[in-house]
Amino acid sequence: MLTLAIDSSTDNLGLALMESGQLRGEFNLSLKRQHSEKLLPLMEEIFELLEIEAKDLDGAAVATGPGSFTGLRIGITTAKMLGRIFAIPVKGIPTLEIMAAGAAGAYRLALLDARRERVYYAFYQQPEADSDDFIKEIYPPAAVRIAELPEVLNDYSQKQITIIGEKKLEVGKVLKASNFSIKYGEPESDLPRAAVLARLGENYLKRGQKDDIYQLKPAYLKKPQAEINWQQKYGSN
């Protein structure tokens, strides 16, 4: 089974090929806003280097965000089209899940910069030692003000939490100040690695878990939680 992973959700442009549990190749390139120019040429290159043709693919996995909406649509469109042309299954996977799945630790807090003193976060728990299950999602992806994270994670203040991703030092500082026990993940787990997406994708697809390519879309984030409503202070004259 040959699975192609595509991730254009963040500044990292990721492409990987996994063949039945064996990683064939991987690109992770930090490119600001050039995904539209770079994705397909890179895909052509990885196919050529590995002497693979697009029609050899058995499945595709794609990151669904959070991230730049335009970036997300580039990756998702590519996955949809491959799914449609070759009638292969496609699985969309949240970007923060890819990050968390690529790190170690019993409790993992994955972060992406949402700017303006906020982060996108998701919180996961490692599966039982001898199971091949996926990491368990405790809090799904959402946007939050960094200052509010201690409150959000309050139930886990006694556990050791591994923090990965953008703004990890800043968030770590805030959590430490609230007496959380934290650990920082390794730098290579701070971005959604394409190889991890390929691994997750293959595992999901092997279990028959795929998405309807006609419905597949980016995870457009909903209303951020626990923001202050400034209506009273600025709303009237």
Binding site: S68, D113, R115
Partner: peptide, 22 residues
């Protein structure tokens, strides 16, 4: 909001419930 940009918003009242503290 997630862009490295300068954002100008005219008639901003409806945005007030969504704004970060910045």
């Amino acid at each position: 909001l997630n862009r490295e940009a300068v954002i100008f918003i005219e008639w901003p009242e409806l945005a007030l419930p969504l704004l970060p503290a910045d």
